[in-house]
Design a protein around this nucleic acid. Sequence first.
DNA 1: AGTTCGCGAACGGGGTCTAA
DNA 2: TTAGACCCCGTTCGCGAACT
Length: 312
Amino acid sequence: MNISHLSSADLNLLPVFQVLLEERSVTRAAGRLNLTQPAISRNLTRLRELFNDPLFTRTPKGLAPTPRAEALALQLHQSLQDLSQLISPATFNPATATQNFRLATTDYGTQVLLPPVLKRIRAEAPGVNLEIVPWHENLVQQLDHEDIDLSICAVEDAPAAIHGRGVGFDRFICVVREDHPLIKRGLSLESYATYPHALITMGGARKGAIDYLLEERGLSRRIALRVPHFVAALAMISQTDLILTVPYGLAVSFAEQYKLQMLPFPMEQKGFTYSIIWHERHMKDPGHVWLRQLVFEELTKTLEELNVGFRI
DNA sequence: AGTTCGCGAACGGGGTCTAA
DNA sequence: TTAGACCCCGTTCGCGAACT
């Protein structure tokens, strides 16, 4: 029999067949299935047509299965279990999962925020594979076309098809090399605008959020260096007199390594929120739900620890 | 060209009644 | 106790029209 010839009605007959095999009585089977005896009788007729076999014969002790029905019994039990498993809600078991996840983030995210995430994934889900891809500014296109599971970034307005959850707060801070002249003189708004800057730019943008803040005050700054990586920018300015404005969490993580001095950002600022962002299509996927929760827990912890010592 | 909506026909699955 | 005849009701299917 080809399964494509089976209708949904035929599939409904299989549990009835199973109960008939167990009860050996149409009346008792009807009772168990909360149906009437004639209804089960008609189901049995259809089963007989379906399998082209009488399946049961009447005896003084009730219905006796035919050899064909006996042969079908074991197979039927297994098939019903498989079908039940097929239509049960999808689950995710980290211990046995072998799923691949793609995360988009910056080099800052990779070096500072992700290590605790990876540690937990290795411990809880050793079969899960993780791929980190560079984050870029066209978030929707990236989540859509590159099949990214999760993006870690700071975005103001996520589009409708994108879901996000805040994981922590940060604010801008300035960093300069450790013997920079501004350390003794102090960093004013005027000197901030006068000195040349380095700018971290992911998508080739000519200006950053800070340039718009300066414009509101009738000021501008000269961008002497554009770099697409956070940590590389820190390394590069450590040999120059450039000012670099970065998230506090990044500065505090690398200031010592690159011999950098932190200076207060010379303008009022609201700060910004880091979020984990994902596409709507992943919303209900149990594996994705597990990953989101794990990343959320680890990131909130890491960002809180980074900000505990906030000073300047 | 694809999608949505409304409508009638066909079908599925339940019931009761009753004969074997 | 089983199974056939008949009936009822809700769902599904197929089709054409309207709309995007």
